[in-house]
């Protein structure tokens, strides 16, 4: 598997800085789980964070070290980072779904397309899994800002570009794009959208010409 469509530097930097909404963070963590290039670039941006941390200081209160030792003795040790899991969905995504693909609670969108909205504590952006049968267009929707779409299974095409497992498409509000699932296996994507995503229609774009009289 060769990933051809990667995360941008600003996205990786914002994720390293911890300033990006949770929904995008989930797409980024999932992509990084599959992409060594972006993992390396992320490590470099985190190193910039380490350098920024060194730049200034504020004196701690008296007795803070003792207070810290008290915390150490009462603290529940933190969980290790998620380990690689077998299955189609990488570990960070499995944490949100509660398991692999078979645990996804799909809701029909019509024409065989399905979605499952994943719960986020942070409402600045929303994130969902989409399953689009081969040859069918992604549901038509509007988004006010950034949208990230990561392929987990199958493939989709958008203009001349082809996106396969691990590839991520970055689109902002200006981009008028029409992704279409490639013929063959159902295309499963993870899509995060700034603000609330509204489907222009509850049925995929394929049906729109028939409805727009």
């Amino acid at each position: 598997m060769t990933i051809r469509h990667h995360l941008s530097d600003p996205l990786l930097m914002a994720y390293a800085a911890g300033t990006i909404p949770e929904a995008f963070g989930l797409v980024i963590a999932t992509h990084v789980s599959m992409c060594d290039d972006c993992r390396a670039r992320l490590a470099a941006f985190e190193a910039v964070g380490g350098a920024v941390l060194e730049t200034s200081q504020v004196e701690m209160s008296a007795g803070s070290l003792d207070a810290c030792f008290d915390r150490i003795s009462t603290m529940t040790p933190p969980a290790p980072p998620p380990a690689r899991k077998a299955g189609v969905l990488p570990a960070p995504l499995q944490d949100y779904v509660g398991g692999d693909l078979e645990r996804v609670r799909w809701r029909p969108l019509g024409f065989g397309a399905k979605q499952a909205i994943l719960p986020c504590t942070d409402s600045a952006a929303s994130v969902r899994l989409l399953a689009i049968p081969g040859g069918v267009a992604m549901p038509d929707h509007t988004h006010r800002g950034l949208e990230l779409t990561l392929v987990l299974q199958g493939a989709f095409t958008d203009d001349d570009d082809r996106f396969e497992r691990g590839d991520v498409e970055i689109a902002d509000a200006e981009v008028d794009h029409t992704p279409v699932a490639a013929p063959g296996v159902t295309c499963i994507c993870l899509a995060a959208t700034q603000g609330r995503l509204k489907f222009s229609s509850l049925i995929p774009r394929l049906a729109q010409p028939f409805l727009r009289i």
Partner: peptide, 13 residues
């Protein structure tokens, strides 16, 4: 400050 969850990439073995 944000009271949000942070999804982490899976650890490499």
């Amino acid at each position: 400050l944000r009271k949000a969850r942070r999804p982490e990439p899976e650890d490499l073995d």
